[in-house]
Amino acid sequence: MSLAVSSEGLTKRFRSGQVAVNAVGLAVPAGSVYGFLGPNGSGKTTTIRMLLGLIEPTAGSSNLLGTTSFAALPDVGSLVEGPAFHLYLSGRDNLRRLDAADRHADPATAAARIDEALDRVGLLAAARKRYRAYSLGMRQRLALAGTLLRPRKLLILDEPTNGLDPQGTREVRSIISGLAAEGTTVMLSTHLLSEVEQICTHAGVMHLGKLVAQGSLPALRAGSETRVRVETSHPAEAGRCLEALGLKDVSSADGEARGLLGDLAPEDIVAGLVRAGVPVRGFAVERPGLEELFVHLTGEGFDVSG
Protein backbone atom coordinates (compact mmCIF):
# COMPACT_ATOMS: atom_id res chain seq x y z
CA MET A 1 0.00 0.00 0.00
CA SER A 2 1.57 3.30 -1.05
CA LEU A 3 1.41 6.28 1.23
CA ALA A 4 0.17 9.70 0.10
CA VAL A 5 1.57 11.33 3.22
CA SER A 6 4.30 9.90 5.37
CA SER A 7 6.57 11.27 8.02
CA GLU A 8 9.23 9.96 10.33
CA GLY A 9 10.09 11.49 13.66
CA LEU A 10 8.65 14.79 12.55
CA THR A 11 9.40 17.27 15.34
CA LYS A 12 9.03 21.01 15.77
CA ARG A 13 10.52 22.82 18.69
CA PHE A 14 9.76 26.53 18.62
CA ARG A 15 12.28 29.12 19.69
CA SER A 16 10.36 29.48 22.93
CA GLY A 17 11.42 25.91 23.70
CA GLN A 18 7.90 24.58 23.34
CA VAL A 19 7.75 21.27 21.50
CA ALA A 20 4.65 21.70 19.34
CA VAL A 21 5.07 18.46 17.42
CA ASN A 22 6.95 15.53 18.88
CA ALA A 23 8.27 12.66 16.73
CA VAL A 24 5.16 12.25 14.63
CA GLY A 25 5.13 9.33 12.19
CA LEU A 26 2.21 9.78 9.86
CA ALA A 27 1.05 7.14 7.42
CA VAL A 28 -1.80 8.29 5.22
CA PRO A 29 -2.60 5.54 2.68
CA ALA A 30 -3.19 6.62 -0.92
CA GLY A 31 -6.90 6.75 -1.65
CA SER A 32 -7.94 7.10 1.97
CA VAL A 33 -9.86 9.85 3.70
CA TYR A 34 -7.72 10.39 6.75
CA GLY A 35 -9.14 12.22 9.72
CA PHE A 36 -6.41 14.06 11.60
CA LEU A 37 -8.00 14.42 14.99
CA GLY A 38 -6.95 16.27 18.06
CA PRO A 39 -8.03 18.93 20.50
CA ASN A 40 -7.23 22.53 19.64
CA GLY A 41 -3.55 23.20 20.27
CA SER A 42 -2.48 19.58 19.94
CA GLY A 43 -0.09 20.28 17.05
CA LYS A 44 -2.25 19.45 14.02
CA THR A 45 -1.73 22.73 12.21
CA THR A 46 2.00 22.84 12.94
CA THR A 47 2.29 19.32 11.53
CA ILE A 48 0.39 20.36 8.41
CA ARG A 49 2.60 23.43 7.99
CA MET A 50 5.65 21.19 8.08
CA LEU A 51 4.13 18.79 5.56
CA LEU A 52 3.53 21.73 3.20
CA GLY A 53 7.01 23.19 3.65
CA LEU A 54 5.81 26.36 5.34
CA ILE A 55 7.92 25.68 8.39
CA GLU A 56 11.11 23.71 8.71
CA PRO A 57 11.03 20.70 11.06
CA THR A 58 13.54 20.71 13.91
CA ALA A 59 14.03 16.99 13.32
CA GLY A 60 12.59 14.24 11.19
CA SER A 61 11.31 14.29 7.64
CA SER A 62 8.13 14.01 5.66
CA ASN A 63 7.02 13.06 2.17
CA LEU A 64 4.01 13.91 0.07
CA LEU A 65 3.03 11.58 -2.77
CA GLY A 66 6.36 9.83 -2.42
CA THR A 67 8.46 12.91 -3.05
CA THR A 68 9.56 16.12 -1.38
CA SER A 69 6.93 18.59 -0.39
CA PHE A 70 7.90 21.23 -2.98
CA ALA A 71 7.95 18.75 -5.85
CA ALA A 72 4.58 17.32 -4.81
CA LEU A 73 2.77 20.59 -4.13
CA PRO A 74 1.42 21.12 -7.68
CA ASP A 75 -0.62 17.95 -7.13
CA VAL A 76 -1.65 18.94 -3.61
CA GLY A 77 -4.52 21.24 -2.74
CA SER A 78 -4.37 22.65 0.74
CA LEU A 79 -6.28 24.70 3.21
CA VAL A 80 -4.27 25.85 6.22
CA GLU A 81 -5.70 27.53 9.27
CA GLY A 82 -8.68 29.11 7.62
CA PRO A 83 -9.11 31.07 4.41
CA ALA A 84 -6.89 34.04 3.55
CA PHE A 85 -7.38 36.27 0.53
CA HIS A 86 -6.95 39.86 -0.54
CA LEU A 87 -9.82 41.82 0.95
CA TYR A 88 -10.29 44.29 -1.86
CA LEU A 89 -10.22 41.73 -4.69
CA SER A 90 -13.30 39.83 -5.79
CA GLY A 91 -13.56 36.09 -5.20
CA ARG A 92 -12.78 35.45 -8.85
CA ASP A 93 -9.81 37.86 -8.91
CA ASN A 94 -8.40 36.18 -5.83
CA LEU A 95 -8.51 32.81 -7.59
CA ARG A 96 -6.98 34.42 -10.69
CA ARG A 97 -4.12 35.59 -8.53
CA LEU A 98 -3.54 32.08 -7.15
CA ASP A 99 -3.72 30.57 -10.61
CA ALA A 100 -1.33 33.19 -12.01
CA ALA A 101 1.17 32.32 -9.31
CA ASP A 102 1.10 28.69 -10.44
CA ARG A 103 3.74 28.34 -13.15
CA HIS A 104 2.37 24.92 -14.10
CA ALA A 105 -1.16 26.21 -14.72
CA ASP A 106 -2.29 26.74 -18.29
CA PRO A 107 -3.34 30.39 -18.74
CA ALA A 108 -5.53 29.47 -21.71
CA THR A 109 -7.88 27.42 -19.52
CA ALA A 110 -7.62 29.63 -16.43
CA ALA A 111 -11.00 31.36 -16.79
CA ALA A 112 -12.84 28.07 -17.33
CA ARG A 113 -11.06 26.32 -14.47
CA ILE A 114 -11.70 29.20 -12.08
CA ASP A 115 -15.40 29.30 -12.87
CA GLU A 116 -15.66 25.56 -12.55
CA ALA A 117 -14.06 25.67 -9.11
CA LEU A 118 -16.35 28.51 -8.06
CA ASP A 119 -19.35 26.60 -9.34
CA ARG A 120 -18.34 23.47 -7.49
CA VAL A 121 -18.39 25.29 -4.14
CA GLY A 122 -21.54 27.24 -5.00
CA LEU A 123 -19.89 30.66 -5.25
CA LEU A 124 -20.37 31.43 -8.92
CA ALA A 125 -23.15 33.90 -8.20
CA ALA A 126 -20.95 35.80 -5.74
CA ALA A 127 -17.79 35.62 -7.86
CA ARG A 128 -17.69 39.34 -8.55
CA LYS A 129 -18.25 40.41 -4.97
CA ARG A 130 -15.26 41.69 -3.06
CA TYR A 131 -13.81 39.18 -0.63
CA ARG A 132 -14.30 41.78 2.11
CA ALA A 133 -18.06 41.33 1.76
CA TYR A 134 -17.94 37.53 2.00
CA SER A 135 -19.33 35.77 5.06
CA LEU A 136 -17.07 33.32 6.88
CA GLY A 137 -18.84 30.44 5.15
CA MET A 138 -18.26 32.00 1.74
CA ARG A 139 -14.62 32.62 2.58
CA GLN A 140 -14.22 28.98 3.55
CA ARG A 141 -15.81 27.92 0.28
CA LEU A 142 -13.51 30.21 -1.70
CA ALA A 143 -10.50 28.63 0.01
CA LEU A 144 -11.85 25.24 -0.98
CA ALA A 145 -12.33 26.48 -4.55
CA GLY A 146 -8.66 27.51 -4.48
CA THR A 147 -7.69 23.89 -3.89
CA LEU A 148 -9.80 22.79 -6.86
CA LEU A 149 -8.20 25.00 -9.51
CA ARG A 150 -6.69 21.90 -10.99
CA PRO A 151 -7.05 18.15 -10.47
CA ARG A 152 -5.25 17.10 -7.31
CA LYS A 153 -3.97 13.77 -6.11
CA LEU A 154 -3.97 14.87 -2.49
CA LEU A 155 -5.95 17.39 -0.50
CA ILE A 156 -4.71 18.53 2.90
CA LEU A 157 -7.55 20.36 4.56
CA ASP A 158 -7.24 22.00 7.94
CA GLU A 159 -10.67 22.32 9.56
CA PRO A 160 -12.52 22.68 6.23
CA THR A 161 -15.98 23.01 7.75
CA ASN A 162 -15.01 25.59 10.35
CA GLY A 163 -17.46 28.45 10.39
CA LEU A 164 -19.96 26.86 8.02
CA ASP A 165 -23.65 26.56 8.78
CA PRO A 166 -25.13 23.04 8.87
CA GLN A 167 -26.16 23.27 5.23
CA GLY A 168 -22.69 24.46 4.19
CA THR A 169 -21.07 21.79 6.31
CA ARG A 170 -23.10 19.13 4.58
CA GLU A 171 -22.21 20.53 1.16
CA VAL A 172 -18.50 20.70 1.92
CA ARG A 173 -18.54 17.14 3.24
CA SER A 174 -20.31 16.01 0.12
CA ILE A 175 -17.69 17.77 -2.05
CA ILE A 176 -14.92 16.06 -0.09
CA SER A 177 -16.62 12.67 -0.34
CA GLY A 178 -17.10 13.23 -4.07
CA LEU A 179 -13.40 14.02 -4.55
CA ALA A 180 -12.42 11.00 -2.49
CA ALA A 181 -14.69 8.82 -4.62
CA GLU A 182 -12.79 10.07 -7.68
CA GLY A 183 -9.61 8.77 -6.10
CA THR A 184 -8.20 11.87 -4.42
CA THR A 185 -6.54 11.17 -1.10
CA VAL A 186 -7.87 13.52 1.55
CA MET A 187 -6.16 14.37 4.80
CA LEU A 188 -8.56 16.31 6.91
CA SER A 189 -7.73 17.88 10.23
CA THR A 190 -10.63 18.38 12.54
CA HIS A 191 -11.70 18.40 16.13
CA LEU A 192 -15.16 17.15 15.14
CA LEU A 193 -15.55 13.43 15.73
CA SER A 194 -18.79 13.29 13.83
CA GLU A 195 -16.93 14.54 10.76
CA VAL A 196 -14.47 11.67 11.03
CA GLU A 197 -17.20 9.09 11.57
CA GLN A 198 -19.15 10.38 8.58
CA ILE A 199 -16.52 10.66 5.91
CA CYS A 200 -13.21 9.17 6.99
CA THR A 201 -11.78 5.74 6.34
CA HIS A 202 -8.71 6.29 8.49
CA ALA A 203 -7.78 8.47 11.41
CA GLY A 204 -4.84 9.63 13.45
CA VAL A 205 -5.19 11.17 16.88
CA MET A 206 -2.90 13.94 18.09
CA HIS A 207 -2.45 14.79 21.73
CA LEU A 208 0.07 17.23 23.17
CA GLY A 209 2.14 17.12 20.01
CA LYS A 210 2.24 13.35 19.75
CA LEU A 211 0.41 11.00 17.43
CA VAL A 212 -1.19 8.71 20.00
CA ALA A 213 -3.17 6.47 17.65
CA GLN A 214 -3.41 5.87 13.91
CA GLY A 215 -5.08 3.37 11.64
CA SER A 216 -8.25 2.49 9.79
CA LEU A 217 -11.46 3.27 11.64
CA PRO A 218 -12.37 -0.40 12.21
CA ALA A 219 -8.87 -1.08 13.52
CA LEU A 220 -9.04 1.92 15.83
CA ARG A 221 -12.42 0.85 17.15
CA ALA A 222 -11.18 -2.70 17.69
CA GLY A 223 -8.59 -1.34 20.06
CA SER A 224 -11.26 -0.51 22.61
CA GLU A 225 -13.56 -2.94 24.35
CA THR A 226 -17.21 -3.70 23.76
CA ARG A 227 -19.62 -3.70 26.69
CA VAL A 228 -23.04 -5.21 27.24
CA ARG A 229 -25.81 -3.47 29.08
CA VAL A 230 -28.75 -5.28 30.66
CA GLU A 231 -31.84 -3.35 31.67
CA THR A 232 -33.60 -5.12 34.50
CA SER A 233 -35.66 -4.66 37.62
CA HIS A 234 -33.09 -6.76 39.53
CA PRO A 235 -29.70 -5.21 38.74
CA ALA A 236 -27.78 -6.92 41.56
CA GLU A 237 -28.98 -10.35 40.49
CA ALA A 238 -28.17 -9.56 36.86
CA GLY A 239 -24.69 -8.47 37.88
CA ARG A 240 -24.02 -11.70 39.70
CA CYS A 241 -25.27 -13.65 36.72
CA LEU A 242 -23.00 -11.71 34.33
CA GLU A 243 -20.02 -12.45 36.55
CA ALA A 244 -20.98 -16.11 36.65
CA LEU A 245 -21.08 -16.10 32.85
CA GLY A 246 -17.48 -14.87 32.82
CA LEU A 247 -17.84 -11.15 32.06
CA LYS A 248 -15.22 -8.85 33.52
CA ASP A 249 -15.55 -5.43 35.09
CA VAL A 250 -19.20 -5.96 35.97
CA SER A 251 -21.10 -3.14 37.59
CA SER A 252 -24.73 -2.90 38.53
CA ALA A 253 -26.63 0.25 39.17
CA ASP A 254 -30.09 1.70 39.09
CA GLY A 255 -32.10 -0.56 36.78
CA GLU A 256 -29.14 -1.91 34.80
CA ALA A 257 -26.02 -4.02 34.87
CA ARG A 258 -22.94 -3.69 32.66
CA GLY A 259 -19.91 -5.73 31.85
CA LEU A 260 -17.17 -6.21 29.28
CA LEU A 261 -18.28 -8.57 26.53
CA GLY A 262 -14.87 -10.12 25.98
CA ASP A 263 -14.95 -13.16 23.68
CA LEU A 264 -18.47 -14.18 24.63
CA ALA A 265 -21.36 -14.26 22.19
CA PRO A 266 -24.14 -11.82 23.14
CA GLU A 267 -26.87 -14.43 22.47
CA ASP A 268 -25.30 -16.79 25.05
CA ILE A 269 -25.43 -14.04 27.66
CA VAL A 270 -29.12 -13.40 27.02
CA ALA A 271 -29.82 -17.14 27.25
CA GLY A 272 -27.81 -17.33 30.50
CA LEU A 273 -29.74 -14.43 32.02
CA VAL A 274 -33.07 -16.01 31.12
CA ARG A 275 -31.98 -19.38 32.49
CA ALA A 276 -31.03 -17.71 35.78
CA GLY A 277 -34.49 -16.17 35.96
CA VAL A 278 -33.28 -12.56 35.67
CA PRO A 279 -36.08 -10.40 34.29
CA VAL A 280 -34.57 -8.80 31.17
CA ARG A 281 -36.23 -5.59 30.01
CA GLY A 282 -33.61 -4.67 27.52
CA PHE A 283 -30.25 -5.82 26.28
CA ALA A 284 -27.64 -3.87 24.34
CA VAL A 285 -24.14 -4.43 22.98
CA GLU A 286 -22.27 -1.14 23.11
CA ARG A 287 -19.34 -0.71 20.80
CA PRO A 288 -17.55 2.41 21.90
CA GLY A 289 -17.73 5.24 19.42
CA LEU A 290 -14.71 7.24 18.43
CA GLU A 291 -15.67 9.75 21.03
CA GLU A 292 -14.97 7.34 23.88
CA LEU A 293 -11.76 6.33 22.17
CA PHE A 294 -10.80 9.95 21.71
CA VAL A 295 -11.50 10.87 25.31
CA HIS A 296 -9.66 7.76 26.41
CA LEU A 297 -6.59 8.68 24.35
CA THR A 298 -6.45 12.36 25.05
CA GLY A 299 -7.91 12.14 28.51
CA GLU A 300 -9.60 15.48 28.14
CA GLY A 301 -12.19 15.54 25.44
CA PHE A 302 -12.35 18.87 23.75
CA ASP A 303 -10.42 21.15 26.04
CA VAL A 304 -7.53 23.12 24.69
CA SER A 305 -4.12 21.61 25.20
CA GLY A 306 -1.68 24.00 26.80
Binding site: R49, L52, G53, L54, F70, L73, P74, V76, S78, V80, E81, G82, P83, A84, F85, H86, L87, L98, A101, D102, R103, A143, G146
Partner: peptide, 17 residues
Amino acid sequence: NQGTLRYLLTVPVHRTR
Protein backbone atom coordinates in the same frame (compact mmCIF):
# COMPACT_ATOMS: atom_id res chain seq x y z
CA ASN B 1 -0.39 39.73 7.68
CA GLN B 2 -3.34 38.71 5.54
CA GLY B 3 -2.30 35.07 5.50
CA THR B 4 -2.12 35.02 1.71
CA LEU B 5 1.60 34.27 1.94
CA ARG B 6 0.99 30.68 3.03
CA TYR B 7 -1.38 30.13 0.13
CA LEU B 8 1.14 31.53 -2.37
CA LEU B 9 3.88 29.29 -1.01
CA THR B 10 1.70 26.19 -1.21
CA VAL B 11 0.63 26.90 -4.82
CA PRO B 12 3.66 26.35 -4.87
CA VAL B 13 5.66 29.50 -5.55
CA HIS B 14 9.34 29.00 -4.94
CA ARG B 15 10.55 31.44 -2.30
CA THR B 16 13.33 32.76 -4.55
CA ARG B 17 10.81 33.38 -7.32
